[in-house]
């Protein structure tokens, strides 16, 4: 009864709201996993590319946290998003009918790098070094796959204890670039991050590799992907989802791919992320 009334009210409000039916823009977002300038640069190029391919206005909206990206997607304020493994799982769980469209070639076999300040005295190793115990340690964002979920999973596996017991102090830097900066400056003695950010930052000469080094690499897992809402065909016309998928898979412009950085995009499905979901459930990060 009340629900009905609310629905009517909502409907009335929707009708009252100015409706821009003419060529409604497609809005998309991305998790803020690294420097915002770079994200903006990258996704504004993507917006231009998609606009051309789809013949429709496409807008990129930057957000301040992983959760905000998922919420915008869930609230239908964005219809498409570049998620990490975990945020994608969260988003698809919250929006029935949504699906993973495409992932980067590298994302099928993604990794986390554990890094440490030289002064911590840890050498690169084949196993997660026991010497991490008692140090200060920073993850990336609380909602990050490569910066939180997977490293925490491997830490628990190796030490059989939650991070708060393994380390003297545990922090959340916010994003991968920050993790590098914090470990490099010695604010934290060790950290874990997205391998691809590490490699591109090192390549660009933005890391003082005398101060900080990689000490362990995780086994591969599935990470980033483009996820789309299930109701886009109703909203933007039949076959819209298919067209977006094709546009993403056909992204060949090297400059564009370089900015991710990915070699190219390959099809992805919700099932590819089953392991991520189970891991997140095991760590009690999702219900």
């Amino acid at each position: 009864m009340l629900k009905d009334k609310l629905r009517h009210l909502t409907l009335a409000l929707l009708l009252l709201a100015p409706i821009a039916t003419a060529a409604e823009p497609l809005v998309f977002t991305a998790i803020p996993d690294q420097d915002e300038t770079r994200l903006r640069e990258r996704f504004e190029k993507v917006a231009d590319y998609l606009a051309e391919e789809l013949d429709r206005e496409v807008r990129f909206v930057p957000v301040k946290s992983y959760a905000a990206a998922v919420t915008a997607f869930r609230n239908n304020q964005v219809q498409l998003a570049w998620f990490g493994g975990l945020s994608g799982v969260q988003a698809r769980q919250l929006v029935p009918g949504s699906e993973a469209l495409a992932q980067g070639v590298e994302d099928a076999e993604f990794r986390t790098y554990f890094i440490a300040h030289r002064s911590a005295g840890l050498a690169p190793s084949d196993r997660l070094p026991k010497g991490l115990e008692g140090l200060t340690f920073t993850f990336g964002s609380k909602g990050s796959t490569s910066g939180r979920l997977m490293p925490e999973y491997y830490l628990r596996q190796r030490f059989d204890a939650p991070p708060s017991e393994i380390f003297d102090r545990v922090g959340f830097s916010g994003n991968h670039t920050r993790t590098i900066a914090l470990v490099e400056s010695g604010t934290y003695q060790a950290g874990a991050l997205n391998y691809s950010v590490w490699e591109s930052e090192v390549e660009a000469g933005r890391v003082d590799t005398d101060a900080v080094q990689v000490i362990w690499k995780t086994p591969p897992y599935a990470d980033y992907q483009w996820t789309i809402r299930g109701d886009v065909d109703e909203r933007f016309g039949d076959g819209f989802k298919r067209r977006i998928r094709e546009a993403l898979l056909n992204m060949k412009n090297p400059e564009l791919l370089e900015s991710f950085p990915r070699e190219g995009f390959i099809p992805a499905s919700n099932a590819d992320y089953a392991t991520i979901r189970e891991t997140a459930q095991a760590l009690d990060l999702i219900d």
Binding site: H117, S119, T136, D168, R169, A181, E184, S185, G186, T187, Q189, D208, A211
Partner: peptide, 13 residues
């Protein structure tokens, strides 16, 4: 209260 100073090399940043 945990008020320890733990940084190793903050000066550059």
């Amino acid at each position: 209260a945990d008020i320890e100073i733990t940084t190793v090399a903050p000066w550059r940043e």
